[in-house]
């Protein structure tokens, strides 16, 4: 039984996009659409989570992800606590579960967890008190579900329904929690074709089993693609000689204006950020008209608002079915 869904099929934690039912994925994107409207108003705030407390528990630094989670929680009127654990009491030997118990004793409602170890968010989800939700903000090489959902949301806003689309994910798939979560989210939402483009050394074994097409040659992989999702080359996760050099990586897998001509004429270019300019992406492409990198950042807030408001909804009593509008 997945830790993410309760027996009624409601989303209690968001750990991974793998195995989430399509209607739930769609519901998250639809809810995000409605929050986008809220964010376009002069009053960019709703009282939905007034009185609730969300803790950003970051065991690995990530200013950008933390900031968008923080802003999303504030737009929902929640109180936000940022805990940067690298500088906190785990260094004094307080163990993780003790720390969670202490935070729960302060009546926190949700933990947003970023950790360098795969499985950390799920471990915390299995050990929190009932009624407390966990949202995975990236764990090791495992998953980064809100990034994948905001990417899917951006694609849907830019290109419409995913069914007819060909989407290419390019770069260091092996070390990328983003790629894994993207593949599950996009296929879960019914994307037409998902390709991964990378050298063999940067592909997980048996990646084809997830339902993607593998291309080692970038030009062939980009042919006719509607969406190109570039990944960040993870210097900090690289061990040994998987790559000859960044220069050679760029010459084979960097996205240039010339390579972009292989794609569909209206293809969009995405990147989870921060961009290594000149390593994965030619700066002219990153800042060019096809790039939707900044829209991804904006959309990230609406998507995180949607996830928070769904996992934190209905904790008081289990709803008996899908929640419908109640006249009154």
């Amino acid at each position: 039984m997945s830790v993410q869904l309760d027996p009624q099929g409601q989303l209690r934690h968001l750990i991974n996009t793998e195995g989430l039912p399509r209607d739930l994925l769609t519901r998250i994107l639809d809810t995000a659409e409605s929050f986008s409207e809220v964010l376009g108003k002069s009053v960019k705030k709703v009282p939905l989570l007034r009185g609730r407390t969300i803790v950003n528990l970051f065991f690995e630094p990530s200013t950008r992800t933390r900031t968008t989670f923080e802003l999303a929680a504030q737009r929902l009127s929640a109180d936000v606590l940022n805990i940067d654990v690298a500088t906190s009491s785990t260094s004094k030997g307080e163990n993780l579960l003790d720390m969670l118990r202490n935070l729960e004793a302060m009546q926190c409602d949700a933990f947003v967890v970023r950790h360098a170890d795969s499985g950390a968010a799920e471990f915390i989800a299995r050990n929190v008190a009932p009624g407390v939700s966990v949202i995975n903000a990236g764990d090791g090489r495992h998953a980064h579900p809100t990034q994948a959902l905001l990417d899917a949301f951006t694609i849907r806003r830019q290109k419409g329904p995913l069914e007819p689309l060909t989407i290419a994910i390019v770069g260091d798939i092996l070390h990328s929690r983003v790629a894994r979560s993207q593949i599950h989210a996009l296929l879960g939402l019914g994307a037409g074709e998902v390709r991964v483009i990378a050298p063999r050394t940067l592909l997980p074994r048996a990646i084809e089993r997830l339902g993607v097409r593998v291309h080692e040659d970038m030009d062939a992989g980009l042919e006719g693609a509607d969406v190109v999702m570039m990944l960040r080359l993870q210097h900090e996760r690289m061990q040994g000689a998987l790559l000859p050099s960044e220069g050679e990586f760029f010459s084979r897998y960097g996205l240039t204006e010339q390579r972009l001509e292989r794609t569909h004429p209206e293809a969009i270019v995405m990147h989870p950020g921060p961009v290594n300019r000149g390593v994965e992406l030619d700066p002219r492409v990153a800042d060019g008209p096809r790039s939707v990198i900044l829209q991804q950042v904006t959309n990230g807030i609406a998507v995180r608002m949607a996830v928070m408001s769904i996992v934190l909804g209905g904790q008081g009593e289990a709803p008996t079915g899908p929640i419908e509008e109640v006249a009154g």
Binding site: Q10, R27, D30, T31, L48, L49, R52, S309, I310, L312, G313, G314, Q315, G316, E317, P319, P322, I323, E324, E325, V326
Partner: peptide, 9 residues
């Protein structure tokens, strides 16, 4: 919201 959650649509 705390008791009934967010409606689906």
């Amino acid at each position: 919201h705390a008791s009934s959650g967010l409606k689906a649509a």
